[in-house]
Simulated assay, not measured.
Amino acid sequence: MTQLLKCALLLTSIVVLSSCGFRLQGSYQLPDQLQQMQLQAPQFSEFAEQAKDRFTQAGIELVEQSGVYQVEIVDDTLTRRTLSLSASGQVAEYELIYKVNYLLRDPQGRSAALEVEVFRDYQDDPNFALAKTREREIIVAEMREQAAQQLLRQVIARVSASTSE
């Protein structure tokens, strides 16, 4: 009896999870038009490598042919803004802003200029300059990863919206 109850409970939880639209993080329903795509980026771009990884992990084949959607990464910039000062007048906290500008072109050649922005706060301490420099590098790498995920989601949403019209 307990074995039957366990099976029924497992089956019920599977049905509930699948009916509510639950999916593992990072799994996307790609429109048919995004099975193949072209990605253009500046040479030696660290962000471009992140974006390529994200697109291929999502199941998009990156090709060099025309007649497919194209993403052209125009530039990616990292800026910082002072958020607070210490009692001695030194900067105590920054806001890091990572911005990616890109063009999304459909197979007919129409394009849309889009951007992705990621924000993070970063506390600075001149007494630990070396450690804070390493921490900042890690934060920037995480911001690139987050921006690549946002880029992928934006492209999928835009292509899905344009095909449903």
Results as ranks from 00 to 15, higher is better:
Q40P: 00
E145N: 11
E142N: 15
V71I: 12
L114S: 06
L10Y: 01
R23G: 03
T2L: 06
A157Y: 15
V16E: 05
E72I: 07
A41N: 03
R54V: 07
F44S: 12
L5F: 03
F47E: 00
P31E: 06
E142K: 10
R105C: 06
Y94W: 15
S111F: 14
T12K: 04
S13H: 06
S18Q: 09
K52A: 12
V118Y: 13
C7Q: 08
K6C: 00
F128C: 03
A141N: 14
S160E: 03
E64M: 14
Y122F: 15
P107C: 12
K132M: 08
E93P: 04
S18K: 05
E93D: 11
R134W: 11
D125Y: 10
D75K: 15
P107D: 10
E115Y: 14
I138L: 14
D125F: 09
P107M: 13
P107F: 11
A48S: 15
T82F: 07
G109N: 13
E135H: 09
I138A: 12
D124I: 07
I156F: 11
T133K: 13
A58H: 06
A41W: 10
D75G: 11
L17Y: 08
T12Y: 00
V74E: 05
E142H: 13
S66L: 09
D121S: 14
E165P: 02
V91G: 00
G26E: 01
V118T: 15
E49C: 03
R80P: 09
S111A: 14
M1G: 15
Q123N: 15
E115G: 07
Q154T: 05
V68R: 09
D75F: 13
F119S: 00
R110M: 13
K52C: 02
L62M: 11
C7L: 10
S66Q: 10
L5W: 04
C7P: 05
A92T: 11
S13K: 02
D124S: 10
S86W: 03
D53P: 01
P107Q: 11
M143A: 05
D106P: 00
Q123D: 11
Q33T: 06
R153G: 00
Q29M: 06
S88Q: 12
L30H: 08
L39G: 03
D106L: 11
A48L: 03
R153Y: 06
L151Q: 00
I60Q: 07
L9M: 05
Q149N: 14
R80F: 00
L9I: 03
Q149M: 08
D32K: 15
L39P: 08
A148E: 01
Y98M: 06
L83E: 08
M37R: 13
Y102S: 04
E165M: 03
S13A: 14
Q70E: 08
E137R: 03
R80T: 13
F47R: 03
V68E: 07
D76G: 05
R136H: 13
I97M: 12
A147Y: 08
S84R: 05
Q108R: 15
L83N: 07
Y102H: 04
A161I: 01
I97T: 13
Q90G: 03
E142G: 09
E137D: 13
K99L: 02
E93Y: 05
D53A: 10
G21W: 00
